[in-house]
Design a protein around this nucleic acid. Structure first.
Ligand SMILES: Cc1cn([C@H]2C[C@H](O)[C@@H](COP(=O)(O)OP(=O)(O)OP(=O)(O)O)O2)c(=O)[nH]c1=O
Ligand SMILES: [Mg+2]
Length: 573
DNA sequence: AAGCAATGGAC
DNA sequence: GTCCAT
DNA sequence: GCTT
């Protein structure tokens, strides 16, 4: 009994495969004896479960040696870290749960659910004071380009999302005992907020020059933490500094983002989004009757403002949607709505495995997304305006979203006139040439406004046309773009995302583009870890069986995931 | 000790 | 690969 | 940073 001091048995259930493997390897390295079966010599039983009762689901009570300790993985990890058998403490033991022992953590969060996608978070909740500061720490971590800062950012976000689901305003730090994702750092911040009304750490960051400059520069479309840092190092302190410094970038997004920074950082109202939807709805019907367009993104989750407009386009007949994006963009272009943009392709869904699909790819090649900048008349901000989308058939396009009855045919007319421009939009069938900007000046009724329209770049050849490499981009110099941005008074530049999907993928796209971003990350992680499925905005894939699960409504998506359905309003995590 | 969502485009 | 975008 |  004195020689075999320790024999560890690990209950494999509930372990991630890789993690279990790593632990076993470490045990060999650190010479900690590991039993392959639960025999009478076992001294320590290690499990991922969190109670004695749960352990009994995996092993027979009779097989447990009299003197054996039943401990959490935490104990084993500490042994591995310290390269010795550490003394078993109370915190390590997996104990019996007495019903009366539990202070019902049930009521602390919206059920005990560990995944944000199971909980349901609303825009309005009781703990904004805390979530705002935690999300500031998240942003700060995202600015840091250190090795693990992105992960730290994620941790702050998770903590914030937990607080959003609390059913009461926090008053004591004790209320967070045993709550997931609330660790030492987060606890300290919340403690300070409770005790002092503010967190010294957060306040220091908030008012630091570096953080303010990073926020300012990264608010420019196309500028991320790396670029922002490099600009700070150059000593630039304001947007004007950057503009005056010459041509810092060849990236079209930064050129336009700089020029229209003020417009693009002015929040988009729901009102504007609806106006734009009206136009799109109408034009889409003209191009292809039966087309379904849906306002997604934050607006669909009930936000009253947004940083952009996300619109999903599909058609009940699979395949009918092909090519509609190019046509739609042509129409918008003719109406002088488009300032600039970029088309993107889709990955073909079965890409997972097939090398063949690569070769086939060219055949199915099409653009499915457009990220761009549009002109929105300021009249959009007002309740109604007459419209000018002709030939609107009275077809009500089905808009599934009942609550946000965005798109009733209330066509409006307005200052989009028939100025027509030679801008080239990338069209599949028409491989093109970059069109030099010809600046067209157009005087508008009210104020003279120079709208130089330009093609921002050009397009893309067919795969078999070997000639030009894809996108080149307009030679419109930064100065010209800035010129263009300056004295306009009757419209605002707005970021618009258009996404086209085949109907077979529509509801996955709807879930994905409705978000929130954190909801998506959480749901995808859940799908991966719990169900071994891969969730994207195109579908849900069983990688073992090599099959895609079909969905004919949003509820289907949740059902496949074994999640209770969440209204978009409840996905604000 | 290792993972943290998944994807595409421009350099 | 890095950076930026969704 | 937090979980497993
Ligand atoms: C940014 C981002 C968005 N998305 C999805 C979820 C988002 O709701 C959707 C649209 O993106 P966004 O328009 O960036 O997000 P949003 O509409 O929720 O917020 P905002 O009001 O600021 O516009 O795309 C991701 O899946 N991953 C991402 O990294
Ligand atoms: Mg949005």
């Amino acid at each position: 009994m004195e020689k075999a001091l320790t024999l560890v048995y690990i209950i494999p259930q509930k372990f991630q495969k890789k993690r279990l493997n790593d632990i076993k390897l470490s045990m060999v390295k650190k010479k900690i004896p590991n039993a392959s079966i639960l025999g009478p010599d076992v001294t320590h039983i290690v499990s991922e479960s969190d109670s004695y009762e749960q352990v009994l689901r995996f092993v027979e009570e009779a097989d447990i040696p009299e003197e054996a300790e039943i401990v959490s993985t935490r104990w084993l990890v500490e042994c591995l870290q310290q390269s010795k058998i550490v003394l078993v403490l109370e915190v390590h033991r997996l104990k019996k749960i007495k019903a009366d022992n539990v202070i019902s953590p049930k009521t602390t969060t919206d059920q005990n659910y560990e995944w944000a996608c199971q909980r349901g978070a609303r825009l309005e909740h009781f703990n904004k004071k805390f979530t705002v500061d935690l999300e500031l720490l998240q942003t700060h971590a995202e600015f840091c380009n250190e090795m693990h800062s992105q992960s730290r950012a994620l941790a702050f976000r998770r903590a914030s999302c937990v607080l959003k689901t609390l059913l009461f305003p926090l008053t004591h730090i004790k209320q967070l005992d045993g709550v997931k994702y609330i660790g030492g750092h987060v606890r300290k911040v919340i403690s300070d907020l409770l005790d002092l009304g503010s967190s010294p750490e957060v306040e220091e960051i908030k008012f630091s020059d570096w953080f303010r400059k990073m926020k300012l520069f990264t608010s420019i479309f196309g500028v991320g933490p790396a670029t922002a840092k490099s600009w700070i190092e150059k000593g630039w302190k304001s947007i004007e500094d950057v503009r005056n410094a010459g041509h810092p970038s060849k990236d079209w997004r930064i050129v336009w983002g700089l020029a229209f920074h003020e417009d693009l950082t002015t929040p988009v109202s729901r009102q504007e989004a609806d106006r734009f939807m009206d136009i799109l709805q109408c034009e889409a019907q003209n191009i292809l009757p039966g087309t379904i367009i849906t306002l997604t993104g934050g607006f669909r989750r009930g936000k009253s403002n947004g940083h952009d407009i996300d619109i999903l386009i599909t058609h009940p007949t699979d395949g009918a949607e092909l090519g509609i994006l190019s046509k739609l963009l042509d129409v918008l272009d003719k109406k002088d709505i488009i300032l600039s943009g970029q088309r993107m392709k889709n990955t073909f869904s079965t890409e997972a495995l097939n090398e063949e699909s690569r070769s086939m790819h060219g055949k199915f090649d099409h653009f499915e997304k457009w990220f761009g900048i549009c002109k929105f008349p300021k009249a959009f901000q007002h309740p109604t305006t007459p419209s000018g989308c002709q030939s609107s058939k009275e077809d009500s396009t089905e808009v599934k979203d009942n609550k946000n009855s965005s798109t009733h045919s209330d066509p409006l007319g307005l200052p989009f006139m028939e100025t027509q421009l030679t801008r080239n939009s990338n069209n599949l069938s028409v491989p093109l040439v970059s069109v030099k900007t010809d600046l067209k000046h157009r005087s508008n009724v009210k104020n003279k406004s120079y709208i130089s329209n330009t093609c921002v770049y050009e397009g893309e050849g067919e795969p078999h046309v070997p000639s030009t490499k894809k996108f080149k981009h307009e030679d419109c110099s930064e100065k010209e773009v800035v010129e263009m941005a300056r004295p306009q008074t009757d419209w605002l530049a707005r970021r618009v995302d258009l996404i086209v999907t085949p109907y077979s993928q529509y509801y996955y796209a709807l879930v994905g583009w409705t978000g929130s971003k954190h909801f998506n990350r959480d749901t995808r992680l859940y799908a991966q870890q719990v169900l071994n499925l891969r969730l994207t905005s195109h579908g849900l894939y069983d990688m073992k069986k090599q099959e895609a699960l079909q969905a004919t409504c949003e509820e289907d998506v949740f059902r496949h995931l074994n999640l209770t359905y969440r209204d978009p309003m409840d996905r604000n995590c």
